[in-house]
Amino acid sequence: MNNFQRLEEEEFEHLPNIPLGVAHNVHNSLDNMRTMGNMVDLYITKIVDVFVMMTGGNVERPNNGFSHTSGHGSPTEPDSGIPGGPAEG
């Protein structure tokens, strides 16, 4: 241990108490940010849709991989209509 590190040790001894609230505040801030992030993740598409509609646009969602028209009750690839993959050619 050199004199710089001994100085640090000495400073530790005379250090005022670390405020207890710091860890709590940091933890709360992180939690809040996480919650905000989740909300944005969840609602951002809807917010964008509302914005697009307000500006006179038309919101069209692509098929999410499940065909509601096939009638077979099995998932289909978007636009292919064939379960398991798009049509070749």
Binding site: E11, L15, A23, V26
Partner: peptide, 14 residues
């Protein structure tokens, strides 16, 4: 979080 914080709090504060 607490373990990491406790480990470094004194040094960072100092």
């Amino acid at each position: 979080f607490d373990q990491l914080y406790t480990k470094y709090a004194t040094k960072v504060f100092s």
